[in-house]
């Protein structure tokens, strides 16, 4: 068993982020819930959970909505902070309501 001890502030920040790889760093693991598409509803992006493409999110609106809702990927979706705050209002449950998402023309 090897032992890798993060010492300076930079190393400790890295260890907190990749806590699973550092035996000594559990106490420093972040308390925030994990962010990212693969941890929530969507099965993934480039590949699905089986490593293939057969179960990728379809239709693409599902992906799009994820960009807005669970991932911060602002370039890909209407800007919900200032210009189009209500663009996804009619989409309550994306699994069912994906077709109700508005189109926004810049």
């Amino acid at each position: 068993m090897s032992r890798i001890t993060p010492l300076n502030r930079k190393a400790r920040r890295i260890a907190a982020r990749f806590a699973g790889s550092f035996a000594d760093a559990h106490a420093l693991a972040p308390q925030d819930p994990p962010l990212g598409c693969t941890t929530i509803f969507a099965p993934g992006w480039e590949v699905d959970t089986d490593g293939g493409t057969a179960n990728l999110c379809t239709p693409i609106e599902r992906d799009l909505y994820d960009c807005h809702h669970s991932c911060y990927w602002p370039a890909q979706v209407p800007d919900a902070l200032t210009n189009s705050p209500n663009w996804a209002q009619s989409c309550g449950a994306p699994v069912n309501d994906w077709s109700k998402i508005d189109l926004v023309f810049p």
């Binding site: 068993m1 090897s2 032992r3 890798i4 001890t5 993060p6 010492l7 300076n8 930079k10 190393a11």
Partner: peptide, 23 residues
Amino acid sequence: DMTYVWATRSAALAGLDDAALAV
């Protein structure tokens, strides 16, 4: 008890025991 290793790209500084050093 360990070797102090300073990574150039990240500027992270960590202590590695001999097993980790061997890796």
